[in-house]
Design a protein around this nucleic acid. Structure first.
Lengths: 212, 212
DNA sequence: GCCTGTGAATCCATTCACAGCT
DNA sequence: AGCTGTGAATGGATTCACAGGC
């Protein structure tokens, strides 16, 4: 019974979380997993797991649990991570370089197909992955040619907004933003921000609170 | 009227978010900011800003707004980011190297004071920041000596859990985990996970949903 | 007996709307 | 008049608890 009605954001986020332990279970040869096992592995509540999954259909068998490979396939279909998404990166300082070469992206279905920078020194250089760094001015042509779907911004903060503007103008609808500024964007486009220092701030707060 | 009762997690996260635009406002010379302005800069609701801040006291002036430098100081005090926190990093592959050199950390009060790796090839090498890579076996001594307060894990996934165990044993109470696995931890300790691919999964889902 | 699927109950977070101060 | 501080109202998300099927 597929229900296409109002799936909570929080559910989407958790469902993505379930993917990783499920892959491990599959590798370990587990056939079946219960909501309780999966919940433990992600530390969430078992009822939460069941409710999350029930938004998308009835994948389990009562009295038994969920078939691991089934569930994995279904979740990937739900999240559209049953295919490879094509990324372009903007800004190849240390962080950008580390990301482009990071193997987890490809493992999870995200492939860098283009790399851009403003610095004439960097343009034309070949990355270990084989990508050649392109000038940002080439964004329109290359977005079309290479079918870039998501932009990753690792430029300096001062260049981040103008880079985002160019990305959206080029027809790319989604941006993963590593610069610590709030990007303006068209209504229809998506931005996700990554800021590790927010995580640190949160821990610092708790460390202080608990540590007397 | 300080209230020390039950501050929501979501509030802490947003208050950390307010810090960045406030610093910009200060730099731009703004004296005063209203909840509406601040809300726009972080895109949240103005009432949310006021309620968040009211958990910690009454920082504003009715009919006027919040004094920027005051508010900044207060928030930093609340978050314990009015001082430098000392980090140790574990695993100096590309990502680890990029993080250690990333200037945003120090700008926000987080300073890498030690770097550890398992690889004998890497141990003894000097980073551009001046840090020398230490063997993980030195963790106990160096944690005490350098007063490491937070561990950052960028090892391979297969080494992540054992590294976390060593970190907690050494008396470090908080870990920022970049490896895509769920770490077991003692009750009293804190872990925050960073996984960019979760952000990408979320956007992939929405791109697919909207793009027909 | 066991574990899923789900309405109902609970809990938490956000927003509204206005009293209160400057 | 203007903007904060906050109780009350709303809206979501989580958890409970049990009916339903293997």
């Amino acid at each position: 019974m597929e229900k296409e009605l109002k799936i909570p954001d929080a559910t989407i986020e958790r469902v993505a979380l379930y993917l990783r332990p499920l892959e491990n279970l599959l590798k370990e040869g587990a056939q079946v997993v219960s909501s309780e096992q999966l919940a433990d592995l992600c530390n969430v509540n078992p009822a939460q797991v069941r409710k999350d999954l029930s938004f998308f259909g009835e994948f389990g068998v009562r009295g038994v649990g969920y078939e691991v490979s089934d569930l994995l396939r279904e979740i990937k279909k739900i999240l559209a991570s049953d295919r490879v998404w094509r990324l372009g990166i903007f800004g190849l300082d240390d962080m950008g370089m580390a990301l482009v070469q990071h193997k987890d992206f490809l493992k999870r279905g995200y492939r860098f197909v283009a790399a851009f920078d403003y610095d004439p020194e960097k343009i034309g250089k070949c990355l270990p992955t084989g990508l050649v760094i392109q000038p940002v001015s080439m964004i329109r042509e290359l977005t079309r040619e290479l079918r870039i779907e998501i932009g990753v911004i690792t430029t300096s903060p001062s260049e981040a907004q103008k880079t985002a503007d160019l990305i959206f103008q080029a027809g790319i609808m989604a941006v993963l933003n590593f610069s610590p500024i709030h990007l303006r964007k068209p209504e229809c486009c998506l931005v996700q921000n990554v800021d590790f220092t927010l995580n640190l701030d949160h821990m610092a707060y708790q460390l202080k609170k608990h540590g007397q």
